[in-house]
Structure formats: C-alpha cells, structure tokens
Design a binder for these strands. Structure first.
Lengths: 202, 202, 202, 202
DNA sequence: CATGAATGAGCGTTCATTCAT
DNA sequence: AATGAATGAACGCTCATTCAT
C-alpha cells in the first residue's frame, strides 16, 4: 500500500516558504535552498513538486488573489443589497482595513510580484488576470452607483489608490499614517461617486 | 597637464545604462556587464566609477527624483500664486499627465526601485527620503486648501494613487484606460479637498 | 500461495525502456525516471529489479547481441553447407540488410553502447565479449574460404565496415545511400576473399 | 594600455581540455570544472570564452576535422598526380596508418562525438558537415579510378570501414590486430576498385 | 582613466538512489 | 512486488567584483 499522497500539503508548504523568503529578500534572492529551508524540506523536493521556481511564484499569485477575493466576498456579503455605496466601501476595506496592516509579508509579496510582472511574461499574465478580476468586481459595484459609462475609470482610480497604499506601506512604511489608508480611500471614493452622480443627474 | 575629468559624464552614462537594463530585466538580473554594454563602456570601468552595483541604483533613485521635482516645479510655477487647488492639480499632472505614459522605462524603473526598497535598507532610505520630500511638497500645497490638520492624510492618499497608477501601468498595462490617470486622480483630489473644506468650514 | 514472479517480464520492460530512452537521449541523459515511464513502471521499481542503472545497460548489451546472433544464425542456416562464401555474405546481410535500416533505435543504442564502452570498464568488458563472439563466428566462416592464417585480419576488417555503417547511419543518416550498405560490404568481402584466395593458391 | 587579448590561446586550452577529459569520461561526464582543471584555468573562465559547453564540443569537432584534413592533404600530395589508386590509399593511410594507433584520445574523442551526434542536432550538423567533406574528397579520388557512377557507394563503404576501425580500436582495443587496419582497408579498396573497374570496362 | 580577462561563490535544476509505506 | 516521495551531491551557468596591463 503506497503512502498516501501529500503532494498538496507539500506544495502549500513550499508556496508559503516562497512568500516568507520573498517578502524578506525579493524573488530573485529567494534561493530554492532557502525556500526549502523555510518550508522545512530538502532542496531537491522543491523541484519534485514544482517544475521550476517560477511555477511556485505563479501559484503564490493565485493564492494571494484567492485570499483577497475571500476577504472581499465576506465583507461585501454583509452589506445590505440595496446599499451600493456601502459595497464599494466594503470592497476597499477588504483590501486596506486589514490587508495592508495585518499581513505585511503578503503585502510585501504582492508588491514584489507587481515588480516581477514587469519582466516575466507568465507572471504578468497571472498578475493581469488577477487584477482584471478584482477590477471587474469593483467596476460592477461602482456601476451600481454611477452607471456603467463612468465606472471603469473610477474603479481603476480607486484600485490604483489601493495598490499605491500597498507600495508605500511596504517600501516606505514610516510615511503612511497608521490606519489612514482605508479611511482616505473611502473618502476618495465618496468624492468620485458624488461628482459622477451629480454629472449623471445633470 | 592632466586630462579633464569625465567622471561625471561616465557616471551619467552608467546610471542611464542601469535604468535601461533594469526596466527590461529588473535590478538583480541587470548584470554589470549589461549595464556597461548599455552605457557603451567596458565592464571594468563601472567599478572604477562606482564602488558597487547598489551605488548605481542609489544614484538612479536620486536622479529620477530630481527629474520629477523639476517637472513638478515647472508646472506649479505656472499656476497663479493664489490658486491653491490649481497647484495641487499641477503637482498631480506633473506625475501623471506625462510621466506614466511618456517614459515607460522610468516608470518601470521606479516600480522596480519600490520593490528593491523592501529589502535593501540603503535603497529604502533613499526611496523614503525621496517620497518624503515629494509628500512634504504636496502636503504644503494641500494645506493651503484644507489646513494643516488634514493635509497629511489627504496628500498621502493622493500620492498613493499616483504610485498605484505607476504600478498598474508598468505591471498590467492593458488595464489602465489610456490618459485616464491624471483626470481621475484630479477628480479624487477635488472630492477630498471639497469634503475637507466643508468639514473645516463646519 | 505466493503470486507468480514476474521479475523477468519486468526486467524486460525496463531494458526495453532504457533502449527507447537511450536511443533518443543517450545513456547519461536517460534518467531512471524516464526509463521507468517508458517501461510503464514506477521509478522505485527499477531499483528493485536492478541494482543500478549500469546493470540495465549491461543486460541491454547482452540482449542486443542475442538478437543479432539469432538473425545471423537464421540466415546462415539457410545457406548450403558447402557454400562458404555464401555464409560470409549471410553473416554480413544479417547485420546490414535489415539491421541498420529496419531498427534505427537498436542501431542508435548500439552506437551509444560503443561510446560508453570507452569509459565504463564493465560496459567495455560486455561489449568486447559480444564483439569477440561475433568476430569468432565470422572468422570461422572466413577461414573456410581463405584459411586460418588470414581469417583474423579479414574478418576484423569486414566487421569494422559493419560497425562503421552503424555509426554513419545513426550519426550522419543523410550520407549513407539507402540500401547500399549490405551490397558494398559484400563487395568488399568478395574482393578480400578473392585476393586472399589467390595469394593462398600461389 | 590593455593587456593583449589571449582569447584564442585560452579557447585552444579549453578545447584541448575537453578532448582530454572527454576521451576518458565521455562528453556528459566531462564537467566544466574538470575541463577547466585540465586546461589549467578557473571554472568561470570557461564560460567567459565559450557561451556554453556545447560550443566547446563544436569547436573540437572542427579542430579534429582540420587535423585530419591536413594529414590527408599531406599524404595525398606526395602521390604522383596520375596515380589515382595511390591517392585513395594515401587517403586511407592518413586516417588509419597513424590516426587510430597514434592518437588514442583523438580517436576516442571522435567516437564520442559520433555518439553525441545522434542526439544533439547542432553536433549532428557539424559532424555531418565534416563527414560530408571527407566523403566528397574520397569520392573524387575514387571517381578517378572507377568513374563517377560507382564512386559514391564505394567511398561510403571505405569510409565506413575507417570509422568502424575507430570504434573498434577505441571501444574494444584488444580485438584489433595491431597495425592491421590500414592494410586491410587498402585491400578492401583494391578489391572494390578492381571489381568496379572490371564492370566499367564490360 | 580604461580594458577585458580572471575569479570563485552561488544559482536553478537534474538525478541516481533510498526508503517508508 | 510496488509506489512515489524524499535525499543530497553534482551539474552547467551567471555574476559582482578584482586586477594586471
């Protein structure tokens, strides 16, 4: 009787090992040996479970995205169905109220992934797909407030603000007043939605 | 008669070589040999003019910052002294109206630098110093509109939006509607400033 | 009641797996995992049935030799007992009329084995033993025509030509006119045997 | 004043280092570290002068071929212009009278290259090109004796015999009677040329 | 100032072999 | 018999850095 497969568990360990090492040393400097050590495994095993280092990164992208989607879904679900603005705020809170402050290594990892997306086409594809999905979600929520025509640009703006807070909190942590991110971005959202609604009404 | 020093010219070439290579391959993968080739120089000369690879990066950070400061100064100077809101918009335009679209390699380089700032303390210090200076400038402009008390958080929010647009346009270029960045961020600014002014007035 | 042993069948599968992989990738690059996959077995099983990779190769050498011996025996048996020259030609046909053209992977495998024989003493021993047996067979046939004294050198020459055709057809396949090998080597044999017979008669 | 380039000298050392190590351990087992050691150089320098290990092999193929061409040219040049058969024999002597016996590592290297040609397309191309050039030379000499029509098949046969002697002397050295190779192949040549001439005359 | 050869540590990856099940 | 996860050494290759000229 063969030993029961523990492949998924091992892949998990390795992906989390990459996140840990990468958030401290970046992707290039996260050597496979260190990833293995962080995962408590032998170096050879990493390549038994992943065809190459990039594959680990791609799985990590997907996992971080899934975590975020869950957080968003949970928060948005709590909002009353007719409260369209509340859902937009819930979306933003999901990213900023806990994300940026609560899990610095995930934020650092995400910023690192953004930079890797610039030069690794496969990473870029994965990154774009994740961002596109998030954006479409947000765009839908925004459209309920201001209509479809203006939703795209507004949601990109709000999402950019979120990403920008990630970058600043990871790369220049001393400069972001603690706890201000969610509040400020929601204010931006309110301003954008008001303006757009007013125009729409005109 | 000693030949006139060309040190500064050489350093310039090398720094621009790094920017070029780095925007295509990232910092770690930008080998000194490639930097030298991009600069039209021999590899050995790079270490004659810089003590190590990181020093080139630090100079690049400062140069990109200086370029941005000049663009900002030029635009803000054109605004009527009493038009406080106009100056905020000029600041944002300086970063987004030309920056993100017009010089993709500088944007890619800046995003790469943000990620390197996460793990290289010296890079982080340089990055923070640059961001702090920009933020203080923006904060001053914002304070003229809404007062000192609220200026800090608002300016960080606007600056985050700018950084976020940089990241999105470098890492997921298909997703940012072309030309929308400056307009949207200025809308955000208007909303924030209106809200804050109203509160202040209250 | 113990299940009947399938050891021999498994060893067969593995040896043929090695031949398949080796003819495409060479011996060193034929990984045990690939051999197992080609054999339809699990990697661990390979080392259950063989102590190491080299042992598979040694068995393969013996099997390819056995195949060749059978082909030779079959063809030679068809020749009239008194037709000594006919037997020499039958021997050569056994190697070249079908071998080189009909089973490219066996030819590639044999050429690969020749090269491995240069550095692995155990492989060299196995290879030498096989070649010696073939040579002794051929030498016997040649001796019936020209006498024992000259048979050794002549049979080595003919055998060398056979091996040379193997190499050329495996390594530079475009250069050997299709179907010419058996004919040309038999012409060589005829020339050698004529000359030697004439000298012998003198 | 820069140091004068010694690139060609270094490349020579490295190529000869590969030949030495490869003739003892095969191509795959000839590690870059060992090649460097055999060449008296540091490991990193190998990749400074060659883009990869295969490039060293390709240069070696060309060098071994050049050596052989020179030996052939020297011997053939000594033969009287009208002595067509003598030139064929000189060609064969160039490969077998000294080659096989005198430089075992070159022979072992060549046999190794033949085997590598089976799986590395670039090696195959280089190998085929070398063999084609040699064959065309021999074919021209043979054609002077028997006419163009029969020359191709005969020259391939003789060349195969030469290659076969290389293989046997490298891989099963005990089985080739010392000094017999050149003599036997020349006998084969004589037989082939006689037969073909007779037919041609018919 | 400038060259480009040289160094050696470290990287991602492969792999024969072992072993718990 | 059989599985496939696990190991760790070795490989080809890259690279920041040094240095003789």
């Amino acid at each position: 009787m063969p030993r029961p497969s523990n492949t998924e568990e091992r892949r998990q360990q390795i992906v989390l090992g990459l996140l840990r090492v990468m958030s401290e040393r970046g992707y290039e400097r996260a050597s496979v040996n260190e990833i293995a050590k962080a995962a408590g495994l032998s170096p050879g095993l990493v390549h038994y479970h992943f065809s190459d280092k990039q594959e680990i990164l791609l799985v990590l992208v997907e996992q971080l995205a899934a975590r975020a989607r869950e957080r968003v879904a949970r928060r948005v679900a709590r909002i009353a169905p007719e409260d369209a603005r509340g859902k937009v705020e819930a979306f933003l809170d999901a990213f900023l109220a806990t994300g940026a402050d609560a899990d610095p290594s995930a934020v650092a990892g995400w910023v690192t992934i953004s930079a890797e997306a610039i030069r690794q086409p496969e990473v870029r594809d994965a990154y774009e797909q994740v961002v596109r999905a998030d954006l479409e979600h947000l765009e839908g929520l925004v459209a309920s407030v201001v209509g479809k025509r203006r939703a795209r640009a507004l949601s990109v703006g709000l999402f950019a603000a979120v990403q920008g807070y990630f970058v600043l909190s990871a790369s220049a942590p001393g400069l972001v007043p603690s706890g201000s991110a969610a509040h400020t971005v929601k204010q931006m959202a309110a301003g954008l939605l008001d303006t757009a609604t007013a125009k729409e009404g005109a």
